[in-house]
Amino acid sequence: MSIWEYANPKKFIATTTPLVPWVMGLAIACLVVGLVWGFFFTPDDFRQGSTVKIIYLHVPSALMAINAWFMMLITSLIWLVRRHHVSALAARAAAPIGIVMTLIALITGAIWGQPMWGTWWAWDPRLTSFLILFLFYLGYIALWEAIEDPDTAADLTSVLCIVGSVFAVLSRYAVNFWNQGLHQGTSVPVATGERTVSDVFFVPLVICMVGFGVLFLGLVLIRTQTEIRARRMKALEARMRS
């Protein structure tokens, strides 16, 4: 029994179908608890007032925007090396979720920035890198849509994803070099174990991050199943026509 058994599309659908309601249930439960806790039961920050509540949307969506691209990179590599169709289709399924997460992070950031920094948008390194990430997602999705043949599309988007990742990291450093920012440093530094966010805000924030993560997982499962079915349908129709 190895993990690669799940690369069989039939097996993947059979295994994940009963899982989806549980995953989605857990995601919605976490999000409801986290967001309600954050929205109703946390105090206002003494400097930022009630805008601090935006953190429960902003940080988790930003986190997932990056992780979604990371997951696409890994599945693209798996597709190029082992040629499992499920892997390529999972990357395709994840891209629109990633772009929505990026959009949420940008929108909530703009709404938060307006009262705090007095501007909707600043060419700050973090903000700029997210805008660049958004452009990368757009290009990736556009390439998927443009190519008819599914295998060609999977190959080319995988190559684009890998090259894009290198340039995305490069852009991140270039942008840092280019401008000093308004944005505060990381809110949840894992390596140092220190926190810049106090405990009152931290617990609901973690619940929200788990919620966004599980929601992402559930959506990827649903959308991957859809892609697998759509592909099988295309193949069947092609066979019947011939």
């Binding site: 990368f136 390439l143 684009l160 090259v163 340039f167 270039a174 942008v175």
Partner: peptide, 15 residues
């Protein structure tokens, strides 16, 4: 489409 793909890759060079 190519412009959409290539222009983001040009960002570091431009900066």
């Amino acid at each position: 489409l190519m412009s959409l793909l290539v222009l983001p890759l040009y960002i570091p060079t431009l900066i």
